[in-house]
């Protein structure tokens, strides 16, 4: 089956490891992703805060493109997924939105009839190949690795189409399927503050601190996310967070597709694991998931980054 792949802006830069790992996993599982031609930025929270007419048009335009190809749209970025899903709902619920969007799309000869599904890899992998299929393909079980799944806001709110809004489980099930242990912690759905990371870092970091602290209290070895904004926010600012909160330790923050890919036999470099700011290779080696490459270990992030960057 073919899907319209909507990468969004982050998966082309700060979240490129997510694209690499997601596509690698899809390849292994036989899911065909066709990148949407001429897609545009979903608008994120910014468009919505400036001009709502264009904000909805920009979002729905991508849905209309996928619909034209008669394919479900797959948006791995949590932000994009949430924005597109909300736009789809509001397009249906509010005549004002529909009126504006229809007129905007008409300028390009597009229309939207809500005939496609908007899907996130988390849910797509759980349902389309299914957990059973994934389990049968595991080459490198994540034995002994304690994983805290961090969901953040947009898979759950304002609508949670595939999980329990207050205690989401999808990512945990995927991680369990590939042999990981689950670190259960209450903050799994709390805001990471990503929207303010670039503007008021102090506040964002207070929120991020709480998530890391809570995950570490649950004895998590690593955190996994399904959103490049969360990943970046949790990964990139740990230095600053630890400087003001010495009670937390550095913790690698993976895309869940990176760990899935690893379990399914892909190599760390294919999955962009070297791109993490807080290095992730070491813990995987310690747990015996990755073979002993002690010699390269310390250089891995830098060396690999230089090669691929």
């Amino acid at each position: 089956m073919k899907y319209a792949y909507y990468p969004g802006c982050s998966l082309k830069s700060s979240g490129r490891a997510y694209e690499e790992s997601f596509l690698a996993v899809c390849k292994i599982l036989g899911l065909e992703m066709e990148e949407l031609d001429n897609w545009n930025c979903c608008g994120a929270t910014s468009f919505m805060s400036i001009e709502q007419g264009p904000a909805y048009t920009c979002s729905v335009r991508n849905l209309a493109l996928a619909e034209k190809k008669n394919m479900d749209l797959v948006a791995p970025c949590g932000g994009c997924y949430g924005v597109l899903l909300k736009a789809d709902h509001y397009y249906a619920d509010y005549p004002a939105v529909r009126n504006s969007v229809d007129k905007g799309l008409a300028a390009e000869g597009l229309q939207y009839r809500r005939q496609i599904q908007i899907r996130h890899p988390m849910e797509l992998l759980t349902h389309d190949p299914g957990l059973k299929a994934i389990r049968s393909l595991v080459k490198r079980p994540l034995k002994g690795l304690r994983v805290a799944s961090y969901y953040g806001c947009r898979f759950l709110r304002p609508v949670a189409p595939f999980d329990d809004m207050r205690h989401p489980q999808t990512m945990d099930s995927l991680m369990k399927t590939v042999g990981a242990r689950i670190a259960d912690y209450a903050s799994r759905g709390r805001c990471c503050g990503g929207a303010l990371a670039g503007s008021i870092p102090k506040m964002a970091q207070e929120l991020t601190y709480r998530l890391i602290k809570d995950a570490q209290k649950a004895e998590a070895d690593v955190i996994v996310t399904g959103c490049p904004l969360c990943q970046f926010n949790l990964d990139a600012f740990q230095d600053e967070i630890i400087a003001s909160h010495p009670d937390v330790k550095p913790i690698p923050v993976f895309f869940f597709t990176q760990l899935l890919g690893l379990a399914l036999g892909a190599e760390p470099e294919e999955l962009g694991i070297q791109r993490l700011i807080v290095p992730g290779i070491k813990i995987l080696q310690e747990k015996g998931i990755l073979g002993d490459k002690k010699a390269d270990e310390k250089k891995v992030p830098v060396a690999a980054g230089a090669q691929n960057g």
Binding site: N38, N40, G309
Partner: peptide, 23 residues
């Protein structure tokens, strides 16, 4: 920059005009 997550390249749609028209 080293990890390849950050670059100076300006990202663009192949055809920006259609989006402008829609907006």
């Amino acid at each position: 920059l080293r990890t390849g997550r950050f670059g100076w390249k300006i990202e663009r749609m192949p055809q920006q005009s259609v989006l402008k028209a829609a907006i």
